[in-house]
Amino acid sequence: MPFDPVRAALLKAYFPRYNKARERESEALQRIPAEHRGQEEPWYDWAEAAAFVDMENQAAVQQMRDNLRRRRDLATASRTELDGRVCGVLTWLNAPALPTHDSVFMADLRAAMAFAGPPEQSRAAWLLAAHCHSEQLAKRSETSGMERLDTFLAVTDEELQSLREQVRESLDAMWRMATEGRSRRFDVNSATMARMAGRMLVEWTTARQAHPPGSRPAQLLVDSLHSLWSLCSTDSVGEGRAAFQRRTRSGR
């Protein structure tokens, strides 16, 4: 298939969603009471706005909420309190770095992730957290829609084919994780799934610049998940890293 129509379709799939996400973050920022804005570091308000948008991921939020409720001191907590704690976890996952010195936050993160629990009860939460944390492990920089467009247009046809394979690899890794290794390939068998994969491809053309040359999104996802596990296991006794990797291995 000619590359030009493919490029046009990718741009059509990506930028309306990208612009909508930026609008939702701006709206969320405006909902933060004026007296609370600017009290923390300059990035904090935007991290909180991004967390509000992430709260729309119902599956991940429900899993985090259920995991938090299993903690003895939160067993009878209200939905409002639990949602507040989930939003706090997501705010710091969208920040430049996790406040590992904050024992209260780390206790919430550890409980929300429930790495020692049944994987099927936390997969969506793990994937969302791993995606956010992978950005914390990268070189952070601000980009605009125009810069992203220029970056994508500079990709050669050969690179585009390679990036497509990397996105497929990433989708397969996420699908293996979500299905406990029972399925090894994610079938892009509908227009909706194809548009989702296309958005991932366009996003990766910019995001890859924040990672070391040769990085692949599938491995970044796994490395980010293992990094989170390590941070959450620092003050607790549980399975070793090798055992956790066996439970969550991408199958490669």
Rank of each mutant, 00 (worst) to 15 (best):
S227V: 03
S134H: 00
S227K: 02
D45H: 03
A28Q: 04
A210V: 01
Y14W: 07
P96Y: 02
C87F: 05
F152M: 07
A138P: 01
E159S: 14
P99W: 05
L137W: 02
D157A: 12
A21N: 08
A28F: 00
M106E: 11
A47H: 00
G117N: 11
L11D: 03
L109Y: 00
V202G: 10
A49W: 00
L160S: 11
Q30E: 14
T206R: 10
R164H: 09
T206S: 13
E56C: 04
V6C: 08
L171V: 03
R123C: 12
A60S: 09
T151H: 03
F115W: 10
W46R: 15
V53Y: 01
V202M: 08
K20D: 09
R24I: 07
R85T: 01
A125D: 03
R176G: 15
W46A: 13
A9L: 05
L153Q: 11
L231M: 14
S144A: 07
T151K: 10
R195A: 15
Q219K: 06
R22C: 09
T179E: 07
R247K: 12
R176S: 14
N67A: 15
H131W: 05
R65E: 14
A138V: 01
V6R: 13
E35F: 05
S122Y: 00
S183C: 06
G38H: 04
D172L: 06
M200C: 14
M200E: 13
L137I: 05
G240Y: 02
L10G: 04
A173G: 12
L109K: 00
A116N: 12
M193W: 05
H226I: 11
V53S: 12
A50I: 00
W43E: 12
G214Y: 02
E165C: 11
R123E: 11
R65M: 13
R72H: 10
E25N: 04
A218K: 06
T143N: 10
E56M: 08
A111L: 10
V86M: 03
E165F: 08
S183A: 09
E165R: 15
Q121D: 15
H101E: 14
N57M: 08
Q219Y: 03
E239R: 10
L171D: 01
L127M: 14
H36L: 15
W46Q: 14
D235R: 11
S250I: 06
P16W: 02
R22F: 04
V202Y: 03
Q58Y: 04
P5G: 05
S122D: 01
G214C: 06
P118Y: 02
N57T: 10
A9Q: 09
A207V: 08
D157C: 07
E81Y: 03
M64C: 05
W175G: 07
Q63S: 12
R148W: 04
M146E: 15
A116C: 05
V237M: 13
K20Y: 04
Q30T: 09
D235W: 06
A116K: 06
L137Y: 03
R37A: 06
R110D: 14
R185Y: 08
H101M: 04
R252G: 10
E135V: 08
R182Q: 15
S170F: 12
V104K: 13
S170T: 07
D172W: 02
T179V: 08
A95N: 08
A124F: 06
A28Y: 01
A210Q: 12
N94K: 02
L109E: 00
V104G: 10
M146K: 13
